[in-house]
Amino acid sequence: MAQDVTPRVKVPKSAAAGEAVAIKTLISHPMESGQRKDKEGNIIPRSIINRFTCEFNGQSVVDVTMEPAISTNPYIEFAATVPEAGEFKFTWYDDDGSVYEDIKPIALK
């Protein structure tokens, strides 16, 4: 199972109404691909984060399906429109059923 999974998100503290903001996300995760073998030659089972979503006040910004070719400690950067003050909600879904969340509020300038 993945251990010490820590999500990190970079969002500006405030934005003008309708402004586009850059968002960076990084989560510590081994992203075991299912292609590697251990010392005894057995396949190490796949264990990855398979989906990442970002919503603002319940509306979708991005919904990403992730496959084993995403690097260890997955990094995703994108841009969101901020129509009003509110909350960004970030969610990562692990193969093992775990769900990791982070929430970032943003104020209007």
Partner: peptide, 23 residues
């Protein structure tokens, strides 16, 4: 396996742009 990622952009995506790191 050729799959890397599929990015679906919602109504609040400011642009249809995304960056990531791949193997």
């Amino acid at each position: 396996t050729p799959g890397v990622a599929t990015f679906k952009f919602g109504p609040l995506a400011a642009s249809q742009t995304a960056s990531t790191r791949i193997r």
